[in-house]
Amino acid sequence: MRALKRLTAVEFKLFLRDPAAFFWTLIFPVALVVIIGSIPSSRKYSPELGARGIDYYTPVVLVMSFALLALFITPGYLVGYREKGILRRLSTTPVGPARVLIAQLVVQMTTAIVTTVLVLGTAGLLWGVKLPSNVGGFLLAFLLSVGTLLAIGLFLASVLSTTKAATSMGSALFFPLMFFAGLYVPRELMPAAVATIGDVTPLGASVLAFNDAAASGSPSLTTLAVLAAYAVVFGVAAARLFRWE
């Protein structure tokens, strides 16, 4: 336990010494909310979106920050640690390599929480975006969304062997998945078939879960099932395929 605490503290320090990591996962999402909200049209009700632009984009930005974290940071760190022989070195000590993985997940979960608070806080204070009224539903959406994405990140860390491959794969997944999440074209403006496909992608379902939570208090059962299925499939695959060396 002492070793795990120390490892987690060290992983936090390393994360904060990595400007690229905290820029993309902490600063960039908040900056995006500020920028989107400062465009006057985004603060007006849009009949097409059924909401103001900023209201529509706040959960999208939140999901984007989770995706940046899980598709780039998680595999980047873990593959790098394997590549450098750090995991192997740890397996010669009494604590073993599994705890560094736990420490990483603690750091990333914490980052996701901090980003969520900052993004919602900024959106609420500056642009009057309503905070989630149903805390339980919101927490459920948060946990499933972050859990699913981290499971995908761990899966990538399990099957990729170089940091270079991890970065390319992260980009290859991030951009198309963010499309389905409605970052480039709002989901409401997509053709129905495309939007339906989006609903069953991890990022699309995550955005949907937050929207459901905001609208009706809880994510729909379908959305919950989609996210849970991804989390289980990728989580199990990661646990089976992860190599320490």
């Binding site: 060290v10 320090k13 390393l14 010494r17 990595d18 790098g80 640690y81 450098k84 022989g85 750090i86 192997r88 070195r89 010669t92 000590t93 009494p94």
Partner: peptide, 18 residues
């Protein structure tokens, strides 16, 4: 064994910023 045996591995590094 891990308590009584220390090992320096060939080509083992630490995180860059540690």
């Amino acid at each position: 064994l891990h308590h009584i045996l220390g090992m320096q591995l060939q080509q083992s590094e630490m995180p860059d910023k540690l």
